[in-house]
């Protein structure tokens, strides 16, 4: 006999514990609230933090979108979608506008989020000070004392070595002027989207057992020096080879045949939407 899984996989006690931690995280923006991360049917470090947040939030009428580095169809996104759908029966979507809950690995969608949406980010390394201090009790103390010299020093060292801050992703941010937070490995391009965001942003680290949050309309500033201001990745003069979009985050690829560098939208559902809208316009014109 095979017993049915409980709604949203978790027992209600687990949900309650995650919910309490989430409310505390919202009340202390950027502070990493410890929680009893549960054993999940996917491996730790594969989005279990995000998944646990999603399962604690989700209800029967929600519409879920899961993305993995901008893609709706990559393995991590598909497995998580399957698990949530099989245990809840909710509708899933690729369209950013249609979703109530968006779980994402390492990207914030190109289409601006609204106040009725919640963005859940998967976090591998929630502690921005970990590269300079291995001990958890020491980093907790640093946070409590507002001592972020370690984070500043990391950026300073990058400037000394490379002439600029060289964080490829996960560029640390100041939340509400108090806590320095790892925004999860989103590209620097996405950091400004967190500032005064309309949607609630929740971040979950399953392996590290931490939940933290950025409430809507909260100041999120990327760490930068006066003489080395924060800059996002530049795609000046480049556009997506498929849909022609510019001013969005592009993937840099090598064309296997010609060896040329080509660019393509990183957010696949955004790219698809652009293609569909031009296709639709094309069809309408040819029939008219």
């Amino acid at each position: 006999m095979r017993a049915n899984t409980h709604f949203a996989f978790f027992d209600e006690g687990s949900k309650k514990e995650i919910r309490r931690a989430t409310l505390k995280a919202v009340a202390i923006p950027g502070y990493q609230v410890p929680f009893a991360s549960r054993e999940m049917p996917i491996a730790r470090g594969w989005g279990t933090g995000g998944l646990q947040l999603t399962l604690s939030l989700i209800g029967k009428t929600d519409v879920l979108k899961v993305i993995d580095q901008g893609a709706d169809e990559s393995v991590n996104a598909v497995s998580i979608k399957k698990l949530v759908q099989e245990t809840t029966g909710v509708q899933v979507t690729d369209q950013t506008e249609e979703a109530d809950l968006i779980q994402s690995r390492h990207r914030i969608p190109e289409i601006p989020l609204t106040k009725d949406q919640i963005l859940v980010l998967q976090v591998p390394m929630p502690e921005p000070l970990r590269p300079v201090e291995a001990r958890e009790y020491a980093t907790k103390r640093m946070h409590s004392e507002d001592d972020y010299s370690g984070a500043w020093l990391m950026l300073f060292e990058q400037i000394v070595k490379y002439g600029k801050t060289a964080t490829a992703a996960d560029h640390p941010v100041y939340v509400n002027g108090r806590y320095v937070m790892a925004p999860s490995p989103i590209p620097r391009f996405d950091n400004p989207k967190m500032h005064q965001s309309e949607a609630l942003i929740l971040l979950g680290a399953g392996r590290e057992k931490k939940i933290y949050a950025v409430p809507p309309y909260t100041a999120v500033e990327s760490l930068a020096f006066e003489d080395y201001p924060f800059a996002v990745e530049s795609f000046e003069g480049q556009e997506c080879r498929l849909c022609g979009s510019a001013h969005i985050f592009l993937d840099e690829l090598i064309d296997q045949k010609t060896g040329e560098t080509v660019y393509q939208c990183n957010d696949t559902s955004y790219c698809m939407e652009q293609l569909n809208s031009t296709e639709k316009a094309g069809v309408e014109n040819s029939y008219a």
Binding site: F7, A8, R19, S56, L57, G59, I118, L200, P216
Partner: peptide
């Protein structure tokens, strides 16, 4: 309903907590 009704209440609580 301990599962679905309380989930709805939680989401309202979270909405109100994140938007004081």
């Amino acid at each position: 309903d301990q599962i679905h009704d309380l989930q709805q209440v939680y989401r309202k609580l979270l909405h109100s907590m994140s938007r004081p």
